[in-house]
């Protein structure tokens, strides 16, 4: 009962460049398609936060599982790149493993778990805790690119609302939260305004990660395959979470620290360890947690370690 299993992390070293499979173009997509996607990316970078329609291809991965992110990654990746793929912040969740395998197989590029070693990071639902640099690209997998979708289901109408900057309805929904619950209750996919112009869905990252988007040195690219949209936040661009002056945007906080590395500044996963619902908290970002432990940081080991509560 007292064993604490180390944090879920896969191999720590950069894997050797693997041999590509035969019969497919580099990174699966044909060059013409990549050019089409790159054009969409360039347009997206030129108009931060604007959703650029693109001729999304059918990928050998189900829609909703990262087809947009994969296409964006495939369009920007080169043989010298080092790829990291995370899902829920971790490198070893099945979907992350699957996508990493896909690129190892079709592009033969080096892959890594280490945030600092990656030149491209494809992510679902998190931004790494380690600050990113100008030399990195963060590619988000996006299920619903339209931040106004839940308020207005019609594409024809939401396009007009963006064009005319009619975003009052977005604040109406935040107003309703406060009127009903006394605070803004959106906890993930929290809408942001990019460069003072477009309201944008940050993808379902927890709002905890929203501040990291603001003036991030790395290029942020967003791909929505099923919805056939690409959008971007260029380096050092302002990204502001929507709020009210008297109900400012706030991020999640925990009273606990990570049970493994003791971090008090990272996003925590709640892990239920027994039938009585006993909980422990560990870093969602598996690489960050490992780096800290390697640097000698230790957590209290969780509820079964007998450590301090």
């Amino acid at each position: 009962m007292s064993t604490v299993i180390p944090h879920p992390t896969a191999s720590t070293a950069t894997e050797a460049t693997q041999a590509r499979i035969e019969g497919y173009n580099f990174a699966y997509l044909d060059e013409q398609t990549k050019r089409m996607i790159r054009r969409a990316i360039l347009k997206a970078v030129a108009v931060p936060g604007y959703q650029v329609p693109f001729g999304s291809r059918e990928m050998p991965l189900p829609y909703g599982w990262g087809t947009g992110g994969i296409q964006v990654t495939a369009a920007v990746i080169g043989p010298d790149d080092t790829l990291k793929v995370i899902d829920q912040g971790a490198d070893d969740t099945t979907n992350a493993v699957n996508i990493r395998r896909f690129f190892a197989k079709t592009a033969g590029v080096a892959t890594t778990d280490r945030t600092v070693d990656a030149s491209i990071i494809q992510t679902r639902h998190r931004i790494p805790e380690t600050p990113l640099t100008e030399d990195q690209i963060l590619v988000y997998q996006v299920p619903i690119p339209e931040p106004l979708r839940q308020l207005e289901p019609r594409e024809s109408e939401t396009r007009k609302m963006h064009a005319l900057e009619e975003y009052g309805v977005m604040h109406v929904s935040l107003y309703e939260d406060i009127a009903k619950f006394g605070r803004i209750t959106r906890s993930y996919n929290y809408p942001v305004r990019v460069n003072g112009r477009y309201v944008m869905a940050p993808s379902p990252i927890p709002k905890f990660d929203n501040p990291k988007m603001d003036r991030m040195p790395a290029l942020q690219l967003f791909g929505a395959g099923r919805e056939k949209r690409i959008y971007a936040v260029p380096p050092y661009t302002e990204v502001k979470s929507l709020d009210f002056e008297d109900h400012p945007f706030e991020v999640e906080t925990w009273e606990e620290n990570c049970a493994l590395c003791g971090a008090g500044d990272s996003y925590l996963d709640e892990v239920i360890v027994d039938d009585q619902g006993t909980k422990m908290y560990v870093c969602s970002d598996s690489d960050y947690c490992r780096e800290r432990r390697e640097a000698g940081h230790v957590g209290d080991g969780g509820p079964n370690s007998g450590g301090p509560q």
């Binding site: 009052g168 107003y175 406060i178 709020d243 009210f244 008297d246 109900h247």
Partner: peptide, 8 residues
């Protein structure tokens, strides 16, 4: 809100 009022 549509014309920019941001104080709840």
């Amino acid at each position: 809100m549509a014309i920019g009022e941001r104080n709840y």
